[in-house]
């Protein structure tokens, strides 16, 4: 597990770095495939099978193929190169490292990792800041067991995700929020039913409208104008 994680983590980071320093667009695409494919593997390792498969199918098999297709259609020479001046790269590298340092240093310290309990179930063990954070935010988002997403399912999150997209959340028990805002809301409109956890019906449906609109837009730009064809 940890060896696999290490392998794919390094592969995805290395792939990302090589995307940045590659000069040829298709090589960039190749390294991007390596990076994003490894990210999909990390998803599998994090028990997110469905997300990992979606990443492979949509991102690597769809979006990246589309990008490479775009490269082929717009290549002016046999191998399209992009020159980036060394100075620019150096500046970008320094700024990037500084930002990376900022992100890392702002991340809470301590660790959260998976361990086995007596029954052989994996549980999340948190130490340091993460434990403090978990204790602080837990009351508002109580979930069946210790608050983290259920681990007994071994990555079989398909059904809960399906329920969530329908708007039902069997993975989260009904909770009475102890926060002020939650109380108020429920008091204000009891007819709205228990809002135990967000159900994602609306985003799921509205994303389809979005995709439709976007598809029309892309098709409009890509298609040739009929009238100009007739004129010529």
């Amino acid at each position: 597990m940890s060896a696999l994680f290490l392998f794919f983590a390094i592969a995805s980071c290395l792939g990302a770095v090589l995307v940045v320093i590659s000069q040829s667009v298709v090589r960039m695409a190749f390294w991007l495939v390596v990076s994003l494919g490894s990210v999909a593997a990390l998803f599998f390792l994090a028990d997110a099978d469905f997300v990992g498969a979606a990443q492979l199918l949509i991102y690597v098999g769809g979006t990246l193929v589309l990008l490479v297709f775009g490269v082929m259609l717009t290549a002016s020479g046999p191998y399209m190169k992009i020159e980036t001046s060394p100075g620019e790269t150096a500046i970008a590298g320094v700024v990037g490292s500084l930002f990376l340092f900022m992100v890392i240093s702002s991340t809470p310290s301590g660790s959260a990792q998976l361990t086995l309990d007596e029954d052989g179930h994996t549980v999340v063990k948190r130490t340091g800041d993460w434990e403090a954070i978990h204790d602080a935010v837990k009351p508002a988002t109580s979930t069946p067991d210790d608050g983290s997403f259920d681990d007994k399912s071994d990555g079989n999150t398909l059904r809960p995700i399906g329920w969530a997209l329908l708007g039902l959340r069997p993975d989260r028990v009904d909770i009475t929020r102890e926060t002020e805002a939650g109380k108020k809301k429920e008091a204000a409109d009891p007819a709205s039913g228990p809002t135990a956890a967000p159900g994602y019906l609306l985003p799921f449906e509205i994303a389809s409208v979005h995709l439709l609109v976007v598809l029309i837009g892309a098709a409009y730009l890509a298609r040739a104008k009929r009238r100009s064809d007739e004129a010529s």
Partner: peptide, 26 residues
């Protein structure tokens, strides 16, 4: 990730629960 929710109605109270100052974790 830190606040454990995306519900904008309770982000503020979650953030308060972490402790107000910049020093507290998260």
């Amino acid at each position: 990730g830190v606040l454990g929710t995306g519900d904008m109605a309770i982000l503020g109270s979650q953030l308060s629960a972490l402790g107000g100052g910049l020093g507290s974790p998260g």
